[in-house]
Amino acid sequence: MNKDLELHLKRIARVVNPIISLRDVEVDFDGYKALNTINIDFSFKGVQFIIGPNGAGKTTILDAICGRVKTSKGKIIYKETHEVQNKKPESIVHLGISRKFQNPTIFNTQTVFENMKLSLLTGKRNVWYLFNHKITKEEEDTIDQTLLKLNLLEYKNVISGSMSHGQKQWLEIAMSIINEPELLLVDEPIAGMSPSERDRTGELLKEIGKDHTVLVVEHDMKFVSNFSTSVTVMHEGRIIDRGAFDKIVNNEQVIEIYLGRQN
C-alpha cells in the first residue's frame, strides 16, 4: 500500500465524537482473516452503508459489533466509553445496539404481536418480572405504532411464519427498532423485496437515520445511492475508502475491485 493511500485512510477513518469505533480489530476464522486490522469510526446519526464484494467482511463487522463473532485482536468502543468486543450479545443489546439479520429471523410459530412483545420487553428486566408481566395499554400502543410504520398493523394477530418474505423482513425491522436503539445494524434489508417495498424500506431507514445511527450492509447500488449518507467500501477484510456515494464511485481502486466487475 502506498504512503498517500495510507494517510488518506487514516484521515477518513477518524471522526469527531463517534458512536462506535473499531481499533485494530481482527477476526480470525481458523487462519482466514475475515477482518484484518480494521480501524474506523462511525459518526452519530445517518444511514451509513458498508459495501464490498462477497467475502469482504461486511457482515463480519456487524457481527463483531453485536457480539456474534469473537474478535481475536483490537477493541470495539461504543460511545467512547463501553468496550463491547467479545461481550455477550444480550449485554450489548442492552447498551442500545440492535441487529437485523440477513434472512428474516423471527419466531415463525408465534403471532406478529407476540414477536413484537418479545422484542419490546427485552431481557433488561429480571426473570420474575418478565415471567409475570402483563402488557400495558401504553406498551400495546408502542407496538401498534411501530407496526403501523411498517404497514403491518392489519397483520397483528397473524402467525408470522405465514407472511410473505418481504413482510417478514419488515417484521424483523419492526422488532429491531421498537426499543429505539441508538445504533441499528442492518444486514441486506431489501433482499427479496419488490421495488415498491424497497423504496418504503429505504425511506424508513432514512427516517430512523434522522435521530439514530443505522449501519447497513447492502449490495444494491441503486438503493445505496438513493438512501446513503456515507458509504464505506471494504475488500478482503480491509477498508478501502469511505465518503459520499458520488465520491467513492470515482475512486479508481473501488471501481477496479468492485464496480469494475459490473462492466
Binding site: 443489546v93 429471523t105 423471527i106 410459530t109 418479545l118 427485552t122 422488532m175
Partner: peptide, 20 residues
C-alpha cells in the same frame, strides 16, 4: 410472557439473545 419466552428459546434461541 415467560411461556412465550421459553418457546421462543426452543424455536430460535440465538435471535432471542440478540433481542437482549
Amino acid at each position: 410472557h415467560g411461556g412465550v419466552i421459553i418457546q421462543a428459546i426452543r424455536d430460535r434461541e440465538t435471535r432471542l439473545r440478540f433481542l437482549g
